[in-house]
């Protein structure tokens, strides 16, 4: 910042915002003083109140999402066909260290987006068999949420999936 801007900045800093009117402070005082006893207070005044039903709802939703995720992953693994004779691509899932604080996080969403699908042509398998190699490119996104303080972690991973499909040629 050049000197004249610095000078102007310093001049602006010397100006003091107008004092808050006393009647306004009194008004806030009255409003805070008139705070209702806990029994009479509306129970679900705000979502920032951790006892609120909204948080309960989010907790339930997070739990349901986590269960749905586990069930979906289990189902996919259960139904996955035996791999064809091709180099297997294994996405090494990192095994996160789980200190006490990390246990507070629960998975809430998992999604994947297919953004590119390319036929990479013919490949030769063992035994001179022909096959076509198809590369699918995904972005996987996983979200965990800490229900105690509403912090969240989003993990976005690019993933290439290579499928080798046996091809048979019929000259007719």
């Amino acid at each position: 910042m050049d000197e004249s801007l610095q000078e102007l900045e310093n001049e602006l800093k010397t100006l003091q915002p107008r004092r808050a009117p006393a009647r306004w402070l009194d008004q806030i005082n009255r409003e805070l003083a008139a705070e209702l006893p806990a029994s009479a207070r509306p129970r679900y005044a705000t979502a920032t109140d951790l006892g609120s039903w909204k948080w309960l709802g989010w907790r339930t939703a997070a739990l349901a999402a986590a269960l749905a995720l586990v069930a979906t992953v289990g189902l996919i693994n259960f139904r996955r066909p035996a791999p064809v004779a091709a180099p297997a691509v294994v996405a090494a899932a990192p095994t996160p260290a789980t200190p006490a604080a990390a246990k507070a996080y629960e998975p809430v969403t998992a999604s994947n987006v297919l953004y590119d699908l390319k036929d990479e042509g013919e490949v030769k398998l063992a035994g001179e068999a022909s096959a076509r190699q198809v590369r699918a490119r995904y972005v996987d996104t996983y979200t965990w949420k800490n229900t105690r303080n509403n912090a969240s972690i989003k993990w976005t991973v690019p993933r290439d999936e290579i499928r080798v499909v046996p091809a048979s040629y019929n000259p007719n």
Partner: peptide, 15 residues
Amino acid sequence: TWKHWLEAHGPKLLL
């Protein structure tokens, strides 16, 4: 002690 805090910071927040 909110009143002291608001007396000090209220003008900035109002601005």
